[in-house]
Deep mutational scan, measured.
Amino acid sequence: KPRVVLAPEEKEALKRAYQQKPYPSPKTIEDLATQLNLKTSTVINWFHNYRSRIRR
C-alpha cells in the first residue's frame, strides 16, 4: 500500500485531538476521520504510531 502523507493542518488537528484524549473512542475516531476527510484506519494508525513515538 502507498504511504499516506498528511497535510500540516491534518497533523495539527490530530495532535490537538491527542492532547485532549490519547485513547479516543471509536465515535471520536469516526468524527475526526470524517472531519479531516481521512479513512478511519488512517486515524487509528496515526494515534497508535504517535503514542509509540511519544513513549520513546
Rank of each mutant, 00 (worst) to 15 (best):
1 K>T: 03
1 K>N: 06
1 K>M: 00
1 K>G: 01
1 K>I: 14
1 K>Q: 07
1 K>C: 04
1 K>W: 01
2 P>Y: 15
2 P>V: 12
2 P>H: 14
2 P>S: 15
2 P>M: 14
3 R>F: 14
3 R>Y: 11
3 R>E: 15
3 R>G: 12
3 R>T: 06
3 R>K: 13
4 V>K: 05
4 V>M: 12
4 V>D: 07
4 V>Y: 02
4 V>A: 04
4 V>E: 05
4 V>C: 13
4 V>H: 07
4 V>F: 08
5 V>F: 13
5 V>W: 04
5 V>I: 05
5 V>R: 04
5 V>M: 15
5 V>E: 11
5 V>L: 07
5 V>Y: 14
6 L>C: 11
6 L>S: 03
6 L>F: 03
7 A>F: 05
7 A>Y: 06
7 A>Q: 15
7 A>S: 11
7 A>E: 08
7 A>I: 06
8 P>V: 03
8 P>M: 08
8 P>L: 05
8 P>E: 08
8 P>W: 01
8 P>D: 00
8 P>G: 09
9 E>A: 12
9 E>M: 12
9 E>W: 01
9 E>N: 09
9 E>C: 00
9 E>H: 15
9 E>D: 02
10 E>Q: 15
10 E>G: 02
10 E>L: 11
10 E>K: 11
10 E>H: 14
10 E>M: 15
10 E>V: 14
11 K>L: 15
11 K>W: 06
11 K>I: 13
12 E>T: 03
12 E>L: 05
12 E>Y: 05
12 E>W: 03
13 A>C: 11
13 A>N: 02
13 A>F: 02
13 A>R: 09
13 A>V: 14
13 A>S: 03
13 A>K: 12
13 A>T: 13
13 A>G: 05
13 A>M: 13
13 A>L: 14
13 A>Q: 10
14 L>R: 07
14 L>E: 06
14 L>W: 00
14 L>C: 00
14 L>D: 02
14 L>M: 10
14 L>I: 07
14 L>P: 08
14 L>S: 04
15 K>L: 10
15 K>W: 05
15 K>S: 03
16 R>E: 09
16 R>C: 01
16 R>S: 10
16 R>H: 12
16 R>P: 05
16 R>L: 09
16 R>T: 05
17 A>S: 06
17 A>G: 07
17 A>D: 06
17 A>I: 05
17 A>E: 04
17 A>M: 05
17 A>W: 13
17 A>N: 02
17 A>K: 04
18 Y>F: 12
18 Y>N: 02
18 Y>R: 09
18 Y>E: 09
18 Y>T: 01
18 Y>L: 04
18 Y>H: 10
19 Q>I: 04
19 Q>E: 14
19 Q>D: 09
19 Q>T: 13
19 Q>Y: 03
19 Q>P: 04
19 Q>V: 07
19 Q>K: 11
20 Q>S: 10
20 Q>P: 07
20 Q>G: 07
20 Q>N: 02
20 Q>I: 04
20 Q>D: 14
21 K>V: 07
21 K>T: 14
21 K>G: 10
21 K>I: 08
21 K>E: 15
21 K>M: 14
21 K>N: 13
21 K>Y: 13
22 P>Y: 03
22 P>Q: 11
22 P>I: 08
22 P>W: 07
22 P>C: 11
22 P>L: 02
22 P>K: 08
22 P>N: 03
22 P>T: 04
22 P>R: 06
23 Y>S: 11
23 Y>A: 07
23 Y>M: 14
23 Y>Q: 13
24 P>E: 05
24 P>D: 02
24 P>K: 09
24 P>G: 03
24 P>L: 08
24 P>W: 05
25 S>C: 08
25 S>T: 07
25 S>I: 01
25 S>K: 09
25 S>G: 11
26 P>W: 06
26 P>A: 11
26 P>L: 10
26 P>V: 10
26 P>G: 10
26 P>S: 11
27 K>T: 05
27 K>F: 04
27 K>N: 14
27 K>Q: 09
28 T>Y: 02
28 T>S: 10
28 T>F: 06
28 T>G: 10
29 I>Y: 15
29 I>V: 13
30 E>F: 09
30 E>G: 12
30 E>Q: 12
31 D>H: 02
31 D>C: 02
31 D>S: 10
31 D>T: 07
31 D>L: 12
31 D>A: 07
31 D>N: 08
32 L>S: 02
32 L>T: 06
32 L>E: 00
32 L>R: 01
32 L>V: 03
33 A>N: 04
33 A>M: 15
33 A>Q: 01
33 A>D: 00
33 A>L: 11
33 A>K: 15
34 T>G: 09
34 T>R: 11
34 T>L: 09
34 T>K: 13
34 T>Y: 05
34 T>H: 15
35 Q>R: 13
35 Q>P: 02
35 Q>L: 09
35 Q>F: 03
35 Q>K: 13
36 L>W: 05
36 L>V: 10
36 L>M: 15
36 L>T: 01
36 L>Y: 03
36 L>N: 02
37 N>W: 10
37 N>T: 08
37 N>F: 01
37 N>M: 06
37 N>K: 15
37 N>V: 02
37 N>E: 01
38 L>P: 02
38 L>E: 04
38 L>A: 10
38 L>N: 10
38 L>C: 07
38 L>R: 14
38 L>G: 03
39 K>Q: 07
39 K>A: 12
39 K>L: 09
39 K>E: 13
39 K>Y: 10
40 T>K: 12
40 T>F: 13
40 T>E: 11
40 T>D: 03
40 T>I: 14
40 T>V: 13
41 S>V: 07
41 S>E: 13
41 S>P: 03
42 T>F: 09
42 T>D: 10
42 T>R: 13
42 T>M: 14
42 T>Q: 13
42 T>G: 04
43 V>G: 00
43 V>K: 05
43 V>P: 00
43 V>N: 03
43 V>M: 06
43 V>Q: 00
43 V>F: 05
43 V>Y: 13
44 I>E: 13
44 I>A: 04
44 I>N: 15
44 I>S: 13
44 I>P: 01
44 I>K: 14
45 N>V: 00
45 N>S: 04
45 N>W: 07
45 N>M: 07
45 N>K: 05
45 N>Q: 10
45 N>H: 06
46 W>M: 02
46 W>G: 00
46 W>C: 00
46 W>R: 00
46 W>P: 00
46 W>A: 00
47 F>P: 00
47 F>Y: 01
47 F>H: 00
47 F>E: 00
47 F>Q: 00
47 F>G: 03
47 F>C: 02
47 F>A: 04
47 F>K: 01
47 F>W: 01
47 F>M: 14
48 H>P: 01
48 H>L: 06
48 H>M: 05
48 H>Q: 10
48 H>A: 09
49 N>T: 07
49 N>S: 06
49 N>I: 01
49 N>L: 04
49 N>Q: 05
49 N>Y: 14
50 Y>K: 04
50 Y>W: 15
50 Y>L: 14
50 Y>G: 01
50 Y>T: 13
51 R>D: 01
51 R>I: 11
51 R>M: 14
51 R>H: 09
51 R>S: 07
51 R>W: 15
51 R>E: 00
52 S>L: 12
52 S>F: 04
52 S>C: 08
52 S>T: 12
52 S>W: 05
53 R>Q: 12
53 R>I: 06
53 R>E: 13
53 R>P: 04
53 R>L: 09
53 R>F: 04
53 R>N: 07
53 R>M: 12
53 R>C: 09
53 R>V: 09
53 R>G: 06
54 I>V: 15
54 I>P: 06
54 I>K: 05
54 I>W: 03
55 R>L: 02
55 R>W: 12
55 R>F: 06
55 R>M: 14
55 R>H: 12
55 R>V: 09
56 R>W: 01
56 R>D: 06
56 R>Y: 01
56 R>S: 08
